[in-house]
């Protein structure tokens, strides 16, 4: 404990006789410039995400599973990781039923240690939900859980994310205050704003550095 005490003692000595600065966080600076009329939120998010090579489709709560099938077939993808216990997982499974030629469905139903190599080497695509999106920065927000664990959106080369249009917030600040994130965060919360990329060689952008090479966002619009 001595390192801890030494560090804290030094810091306290240096601050002796001073008072902590008051909190003067001016939220208008992080919200004001980043507000959009509702009808522009999707356009803003699309524009930013597409600028970094995200494929974005606008579809409906009813039609998206067919679109997923179409996108996978076009890419000659033969398997898809999904979460059967989630509502969207159930919907996907229904759409897959009786369709023999669709990619095989795989499930993340064991601790990672039991199938890490398969997840890393065999799974070609995954489909997950999101808890919302952010128009200002063109971001998806994911809170991985038992059904859709962290690596599900990271390890497969293609990640398909479902985003409800009604879940798109203007900016991150609004979203975290609306949903009261400060009261408790999951073990891992993620903002995802495109497929994995790097510009480490000559600043030339290359996609698919370590995570998904392709990010496909399906925006579900329902009245």
């Amino acid at each position: 404990m001595s390192a801890r005490n030494n560090i804290l003692t030094k810091l306290r000595t240096s601050l002796a006789g001073t008072t902590p600065r008051p909190d003067e966080f001016d939220e208008s600076l992080v919200t004001g410039p980043w507000r959009y009329p509702p009808e522009q939120r999707i356009a803003r998010l699309r524009e930013l995400m597409e600028a970094v090579h995200t494929e974005v489709h606008q579809t409906t709560e009813g039609d998206w599973p067919e679109l997923v099938a179409e996108l996978l077939v076009k890419r000659e993808i033969t398997n898809l990781l999904y979460a059967p216990a989630t509502p969207h997982g159930k919907q996907l499974a229904r759409a897959w039923k009786d369709e023999a030629d669709r990619p095989a469905l795989r499930v993340y139903d064991r601790p990672i240690e039991e199938w890490k190599a398969q997840l890393f080497n065999e799974v070609q695509a995954s489909v997950t939900g999101t808890i919302g999106g952010i128009a200002a920065t063109g971001s998806l927000v994911l809170w991985p859980d038992r059904h859709e664990p962290r690596l599900m959106s990271l390890a497969p080369p293609v990640h398909i994310a479902l985003l409800k249009a009604s879940g798109i917030h203007d900016n991150w600040y609004d979203m975290m205050t609306d949903q009261n994130w400060a009261a408790g965060l999951p073990t891992n919360a993620l903002l995802v704003s495109g497929p994995s990329k790097t510009a480490d060689i000559e600043q030339v952008l290359a996609y698919g550095a370590h995570g998904p090479k392709e990010l496909i966002v399906l925006i579900l619009e329902d009245v």
């Binding site: 970094v52 993340y108 038992r146 664990p149 891992n188 704003s193 510009a199």
Partner: peptide, 24 residues
């Protein structure tokens, strides 16, 4: 740093794997 509105990933870690979780 890079002129990006945000990086591809913002990763908020608030704990190790919980008993019912499958990775992390």
């Amino acid at each position: 740093a890079l002129g990006q509105p945000i990086t591809t990933y913002v990763n908020l870690i608030s704990g190790p794997r919980k008993p019912d979780e499958l990775d992390g």
